[in-house]
Amino acid sequence: MRRPLHFLFCLALAGCAWGPGQGFAVVEPTVRVAYEAQPARNAGDGYQKLASDYQVRLDSASMRLDGIELIAISGGSGGAFDPANPPPRYSLCHGGHCHRDDGALIPYEQIAAEMGGGGGSSTVVTLPVEEPINLLAPETRAVGCQPECALPQTQVSQGRWGIKTLRLEGTVRDGRVPPRIASERRFVLDRMPGLNDAPVAVLTSQVDLPSDRENPPEAKVALRLVLTAQLFDTVDWSTLAQNQDGVVDFGNPANAKALEAVLEQLARISPQAEVTRG
């Protein structure tokens, strides 16, 4: 009875390492996304201080994700990579990463691996997050896997988050005396996919998830993304156009630079990944 029972146990785990080099992991992913107030930025009445001395309060905040990819990066020599002369699709290399044309900030080592002939990056599994997320009432969600949660032998080293939509509504006021804006102002940022359904932003994070024969197969992967008021740190609110109702709309072409500044701050956020083997 030993062999049949072992076979059934392997089926329950969605995979087994039957021969040399055939490692595996079975992931149980959860996702949590939130906008969090920081105690050091507390300005009272729900407002958060900005680096510019303006203060913002969010009254509603929601996001849709275009899935989360868990990625393996193949090694390569990377000797030809020069941050001052990045390859096609990349620009503005600084601080250890380059901007890719889809909005992602890609680490130097990943670009070097792609250029070094090591095969670049490959998606091992995609975690769909289909329902909209209320950032002010966050919850931890169990999510599924595509094509499956049983992974092949590999080393997952990166997570890639595609943000499909982002909507933020709130109020801004000035913390200086005299104030640069006369009173509180309502604002709205409603960002949808761009041309060719391009995501609003693509975030990358480090993940340490070996899928091999050396670790227990069960792997709980807790993925977290935290947004803060830092998103608005570089915005000069006194220069932004208001609509006829006195609302600052980041979608107004006159406010394009401010929108770009917020999205740049968003793209710099690195989600967290905690892997627990059981």
Rank of each mutant, 00 (worst) to 15 (best):
C16N: 04
Y47E: 01
L203Q: 01
G144E: 02
G246D: 06
M63V: 14
A241C: 11
V226T: 15
A34Q: 13
S122H: 13
V200R: 00
G15Q: 00
A256F: 12
W161Y: 15
G96I: 14
D174P: 06
H97N: 09
G162R: 15
G44P: 02
Q48K: 04
Q48N: 03
V33E: 02
F9M: 08
V247K: 05
A267Q: 09
V156R: 04
G118C: 09
R2M: 13
Y35E: 06
A80G: 10
K49R: 15
G159Y: 06
G44K: 03
R185W: 00
K49V: 05
Q265Y: 07
L203A: 01
P178Q: 04
L166Q: 10
K49A: 13
G96F: 12
T171L: 13
V156P: 03
R141A: 02
A34K: 11
Q265F: 06
T228L: 08
Y54D: 02
Q38V: 13
G159R: 03
D233P: 12
T123S: 12
G162A: 13
A43V: 04
D53I: 09
V143Q: 00
N196I: 03
C16Y: 00
R277C: 08
R173E: 09
D102Y: 08
C10K: 05
R185S: 02
P178A: 03
P138V: 00
Q153V: 06
A254M: 11
I68G: 02
T140K: 01
Q55R: 12
D101F: 13
P39W: 10
E69A: 15
R277T: 08
A37C: 10
A61E: 09
V235H: 07
S205G: 15
A256T: 14
Q146I: 02
V172M: 14
G246H: 05
R176E: 05
S91Y: 12
R186S: 02
H97R: 12
R64C: 10
R100G: 10
P216S: 11
R167F: 13
V202Q: 04
W18H: 11
N42R: 10
A182I: 02
G96T: 14
Y108T: 04
D59A: 09
D245Y: 12
E148I: 01
R3V: 10
R173G: 07
E28A: 14
L231G: 05
V177F: 08
S183G: 06
P217C: 09
D190N: 06
A112W: 00
N252K: 04
R89L: 14
A137T: 06
D82Q: 10
Q110C: 07
G67N: 07
G23D: 01
L225D: 06
A12D: 01
L65T: 11
N196G: 05
E28V: 10
L225W: 09
D197K: 08
L105F: 08
G79Y: 05
V248F: 01
Q206C: 08
I111Y: 03
A112Y: 03
G76M: 01
R185T: 02
L127I: 07
V26I: 09
Q38G: 06
E214T: 12
R167T: 14
F232H: 08
V207L: 07
F187M: 01
E36T: 11
N215S: 15
G96R: 15
P271V: 03
T140W: 00
G170C: 14
